[in-house]
């Protein structure tokens, strides 16, 4: 554990909590892509199956359970509790265009051809593109509330901090995880355009129409 990794995990947790609290307090999920949130729940589910097979640390176990619980709570709020406010007309990104290539790639490129490893690889690849329905929705409607942009900022910051963590680990431990690093860099690149808008235009984002 190093400071970049810890800051990355905290940033990830903050992002998820910002979104959950926004929906809970406003009793509305307007402007939020339910499809992205289902994909993130799928990411956590397929990645954290090792909760049942290996014990790493109390921190690791607790964080995994928290991420799983919060992601399912978010999906529940969007599709059940506050479904009247769900903007399904603008949440139209075709997720099969993400899922099919990601499933194919995880069978081709993995560390071992076993169910758990393939599912782990699937989760890493899927995470790198899971935000696309949300970014698509913002492009389609041309706007995002400031609280939604804070969510995206912390979510992008999380993977950027993980890159620093990987650089650190490579230099101090000689450790590197090629699949995670390549996917993490791709994932972070998707946020660059957003980061630019966030910094230059301030919180509330309107895309040029």
């Amino acid at each position: 554990m190093n400071i970049f990794r810890l800051a990355g995990d905290v940033s990830h947790l903050v992002a998820i909590l910002i979104l959950l609290m926004k929906i809970w307090r406003s009793k509305s999920c307007a402007g939020i892509s339910g499809r992205s949130q289902v994909l993130f729940a799928l990411v956590f589910t397929t990645r954290y199956l090792d909760l049942f097979t290996v014990y790493i640390s109390a921190y690791n176990t607790v964080m995994k359970v928290v991420f799983l619980a919060l992601s399912y709570a978010t999906v529940y709020l969007i599709y059940m509790r506050f479904r009247n406010s769900y903007d399904s007309e603008n949440d139209t990104f075709r997720v099969e265009f993400l899922l099919i290539p990601v499933i194919g790639l995880s069978f081709l490129e993995n560390y071992a051809f076993t169910p758990l490893e393939i599912l782990w690889t699937f989760s890493i690849f899927l995470e790198s593109v899971a935000i696309m329905p949300q970014l698509f929705m913002i492009t389609k409607t041309g706007e995002a509330e400031s609280i939604t942009t804070h969510y995206l900022f912390f979510l992008g910051l999380y993977r950027a901090l993980y890159i620093a963590n990987w650089v650190w680990r490579y230099h101090t431990e000689g450790f590197y995880d090629q699949i995670a690093i390549v996917s993490g860099v791709v994932q972070t690149i998707f946020y660059c355009d957003f980061f630019y808008l966030y910094v230059t235009r301030g919180e509330e984002i309107r895309t040029p129409s």
Partner: peptide, 10 residues
Amino acid sequence: SDNESGKDEL
């Protein structure tokens, strides 16, 4: 560290 199972990152 090996890459299979027991990954310590989240």
